[in-house]
Simulated assay, not measured.
Amino acid sequence: MIDSLGQVVVYVNDIEQAAKFWKDQVGFELVERQENLGLVSYLVAPKKDSQVQIVLQDKAQVAELSPELDLGTPSFLMESADLDATYQFMLDRGVLVMPIVDLGLMRVFNFSDLEENYFAIREVKK
Rank of each mutant, 00 (worst) to 15 (best):
M1H: 02
S4T: 12
G6T: 04
Q7G: 01
V10T: 02
V10K: 01
V12E: 08
N13S: 11
I15T: 08
Q17W: 00
A19G: 04
F21N: 04
W22T: 08
K23V: 15
Q25F: 06
E29W: 00
L30N: 11
V31G: 08
E32I: 10
Q34E: 10
Q34W: 09
E35H: 03
E35P: 05
N36A: 10
L39F: 13
L39C: 11
V40Y: 08
A45V: 05
P46K: 05
P46F: 01
K47C: 04
Q53H: 12
V55W: 01
V55I: 12
Q57S: 15
D58L: 02
D58N: 11
Q61N: 11
Q61G: 07
Q61R: 14
V62P: 12
A63Y: 09
E64H: 14
S66C: 10
P67L: 13
E68L: 11
L71N: 06
G72S: 15
T73P: 02
T73D: 01
S75W: 09
F76G: 07
F76V: 03
L77G: 01
L77A: 06
M78A: 10
S80E: 06
A81K: 06
A81W: 04
L83F: 07
L83N: 11
L83T: 07
L83E: 10
T86P: 00
T86E: 13
Y87H: 14
M90R: 05
L91V: 12
V95G: 09
V97R: 03
V97T: 15
V97G: 10
P99S: 13
P99I: 13
P99M: 15
I100G: 06
I100P: 05
R107M: 10
R107Q: 13
R107V: 09
D113F: 00
D113V: 02
D113M: 02
E116S: 13
N117E: 04
F119V: 04
I121V: 15
R122G: 04
E123H: 11
K125R: 10
K125N: 04
